[in-house]
Design a protein around this nucleic acid. Structure first.
Lengths: 272, 272
DNA sequence: CGCATGACGTGATTTAAGTCACATCGTCAC
DNA sequence: GTGACGATGTGACTTAAATCACGTCATGCG
């Protein structure tokens, strides 16, 4: 049977040992991760400036920020740790202060489908906001990450007393909905190379003049719904065409226009 | 270049004439549909009983129902008509009174990826609820359909005055989010036959003892992210195995357990 | 330093699944 | 009845992309 694939993270060693037993290893890793997730490093106070860094809170008056700071908690996770799992009881709303968090779905066969990445300022963990009982997906720290946590109880209180803020959060989730719809389309209707290009664009850090994607090829593959080897080969093609430069654990985009999705360009097939 | 595919609806004739020109026909159809969508048949009053049929409104006191009935509008669309298009200005919240509506994403190449079906009682058109500017996907009448429309203005009013109802609606969208996350996983990590089975389960009408899927193979293919021929072949296999019975425009499920997703059954590969 | 480990490159092979090209049925309109 | 058209069945072919099996190259560490 086909389509078995990379395990949660860092599976090179496992892969080297055994391909047949991947499933078992996957299950194992999930269990291990479940333990790791309580392994946070610290829980400290949060300053107002910290909160102002988060777009949703940016325009809030100081008094509201202070009440938020009083109930929110700072947590840190090491790279690879599972923050919450799909199917878990939904507890709180999470904000990324630094680092990146990967939102994934894992089919029990061990295959991982990345849904999106959350970086600085983004919030995730939709569930309590919607009265959702269980998390719809898994969140994993991509690198070392600092999160601010808004516990469910506080959120409940906010829903009743601060509709304005709730509205801002809902807006964020509208984008989430849109993004997921897009992922579905891309996975269903695009070719794999197009999907890889799209992921490059989506996850590029565009601050610099040469945008950079700080991801291993493994993780890029998961976000594109494919496997490492294919990503590797496709990137090599792009590099030969002068569109990207491959560096360890990162890809530098040299010609961003060349990656633009096939929609834009009417027809990339031979015109004749 | 591969992966070109079924056009919006009823493309058999087109397909017969020309495979090469599909793209052009697809674009054409989209334009045509854009005209058709204003072609609703009637706009009539709505009774309280009509509203009570919708789960979200079920527990509402009469007075609230009456105020809803005052602002909501009934519309009817013929099979195949586009109700709204991806990218359109989001105008209102829609409820399905009868018939079924298909939510789709169309990549400009003419390929259609079905996201979900909405049947009686479901609501769609998330957007105004979230302050979303544009529709994230397209809605098309699958068969003749009657819809109740809650215009944006009324919704705006409701958001301020009836938090309880808004909460109920948000809950619906939490399920939407969950469903989309699932679609993404399924498209990215499952094999095509599994995806078809999953679609059969998802869209079966389970009221009868033998559940029935009232869909053409074409539409089933779109919902599964594949093409008609593959669906046809796979269904034939299922029929030979005694799991379904194929009838024109519908599939009768005889052994629903046999369709259950691969997750459930630990391992469907040979145990040795 | 050696060795484990994790990231990446690549050829060979396999196969799932899309594409093409017709054929077969109903049924509905005229 | 007889086209027309829409839904479906199917064989033959093609190919994108996954899998397998290694090899290379860094980096960290006892």
């Amino acid at each position: 049977m086909p389509r078995m694939c990379p395990v949660v993270t860092g599976d090179t060693a496992l892969a080297r040992r055994s391909y047949q037993n991947r499933t078992k290893y996957a299950i194992l890793l999930i269990v291990v991760s479940n333990v790791l997730r309580y392994n946070m490093v610290a829980a400290l106070q949060i300053s107002l400036d910290n909160l102002r860094d988060i777009p949703a809170f940016h325009a809030l008056p100081d008094e509201q920020l202070m009440s938020l700071a009083a109930v929110m908690v700072r947590r840190q996770y090491a790279a690879g740790h599972i923050i919450f799992m799909e199917g878990d009881q939904a507890e709180s709303l999470w904000f990324v202060a630094s680092g990146r968090v990967k939102i994934i779905k894992q089919s029990l066969h061990g295959r991982v489908q990345g849904l999106c990445l959350m970086d600085r300022g983004k919030c995730f963990g939709s569930c309590p906001l919607f009265d959702m009982a269980k998390n719809p997906a898994t969140a994993q720290a991509l690198n070392d990450v600092t999160l601010f946590v808004l516990p469910e109880a506080a959120l409940e209180h906010m829903k009743a007393h601060d509709p304005h803020l709730v509205k801002a959060l809902l807006h964020i989730y509208s984008q989430r909905l849109e993004h997921l719809a897009r992922v579905s389309e891309v996975l269903g209707a695009w070719t794999v190379p197009d999907r890889i290009n799209d992921s490059l664009l989506t996850y590029a850090d565009r601050d610099a003049r040469d945008p950079v994607v700080e991801l291993t090829q493994e993780k890029l593959a998961s976000l594109s719904g494919t496997v490492r080897e294919v990503v590797s080969r496709h990137l090599r093609l792009l590099e030969k065409a002068g569109i990207v430069r491959i560096e360890p654990r990162r890809i530098v985009i040299l010609n961003i226009d060349a990656l633009m999705p096939p929609c834009a360009c009417e027809d990339q097939r031979k015109p004749a």
